[in-house]
Design a protein around this nucleic acid. Structure first.
Lengths: 193, 193
DNA sequence: TCTATTATGCAACAAATTGTTCTATAGGAG
DNA sequence: CTCCTATAGAACAATTTGTTGCATAATAGA
């Protein structure tokens, strides 16, 4: 027996609105009342789906933080793979809801176990994709295995997040070029000593 | 004419409590009512000081994010100066309220101009102190001027923030050693080409 | 010390928000 | 067509938020 389409429609519409509110006004304004006004869905229905404010907010977090699958490119050379992958991650920060919602998740994670899980899983996913790129480069012999890969991965991902979430600086092509250049130069000069 | 000590005492006690609530329970719980209950100060007095919830929260942000003066050490060598300075910044993230409050400020900054100012000014300060270390190294001739200093500064600061705020990983001495090593190796290998 | 000023505490209050419950209705399943 | 169930809407209590007036206590200035 299939799920009632009304349930699905209500959940979807409500979380769309909750997500929008979360991005534009912050977690403070994600309430049953606000979502009701934004969607036309009655408050009582919303309470039936999410019994309290916290569960509504968690649902909004969870929905938006679901990591989209990152297509992988590991055929080398390193600079090319890395630039391509980081462009995808950068694009996600610049142009998808994730970029706008991430700050709220970061904050929630400091007091909320659920949000912490969301963000650490998300990051694990990001790290894995960068790791694959370096592993492939090692496999091709382009860099040697004694490169401090873990540190490089962290720097590779940390920089765009820091720039965007904390400094509110632009993430553009020029910046990305410099960033990739530096990462590659570290990988190469630390390689095979 | 001096300011009435009662004003000062009330502000201080209230913001102490607001800050504590902000750290432990998140921005959602910083309200006049909660602060009143925590301090014994009457709600009406709090409203007289901060007319609405927003101004109360902003005040709490502003108070905790005020950058403590960072003592500078730039007498070299680079590795030593850098390690010393980053240890201070790391300590601030680990052991002061700033480390716990920063996530909330990051989130607020995405929808609140005031919070954005707070954090960008704070970071400007941090960056300046790291810059001084590199500038001194250049001045001593330890590294040359063509090192991509701006990128290095960003990586130097981004890494600990990313680790703490986003990944919730430990910031310990071992990690710091590795981090400083890598930064120095970048600076040296890019130097004097 | 005496007086005028002003911050606080308290209580009462209005307004808005939050959460609950009931009933009628409309949409979907079989 | 009939049964089931999700929703809308209204009524409601409880809590929170913000305001106001007044008595009290602390402070500043003479």
């Amino acid at each position: 027996m299939k799920e009632d389409p009304r349930l699905i429609a209500t959940r979807q519409a409500a979380l769309d609105a909750a997500q929008k509110i979360l991005m534009e006004e912050g977690v403070l304004h994600v309430t049953h009342g606000a979502v009701s006004k934004a969607t036309g869905i009655s408050r009582s229905t919303l309470y039936r789906h999410w019994p309290d404010a916290r569960s509504l907010r968690d649902a909004a977090f969870r929905r938006i933080a679901t990591p989209p699958n990152i297509p992988s490119k590991t055929d080398g050379p390193l600079r090319s793979d890395l630039r391509w992958l980081l462009a995808v991650l950068m694009g996600a920060l610049n142009d998808t809801p994730w970029g706008q919602i991430a700050p709220q998740v970061v904050a929630a994670a400091s007091t909320d176990e659920e949000a912490r899980l969301v963000i650490t899983e998300f990051m694990k996913d990001r790290f894995a994709s960068v790791e694959a790129v370096f592993a492939a480069a090692v496999g091709r012999g382009e860099i040697t295995a004694d490169v401090p890969v873990d540190q490089l991965i962290e720097l590779a991902v940390a920089a765009p997040y820091f720039r965007k979430l904390i400094r509110h600086e632009a993430l553009d092509e020029d910046w990305l070029d410099q960033h990739v250049d530096l990462l590659c130069s570290i990988a190469k000069t630390n390689s095979g000593q």
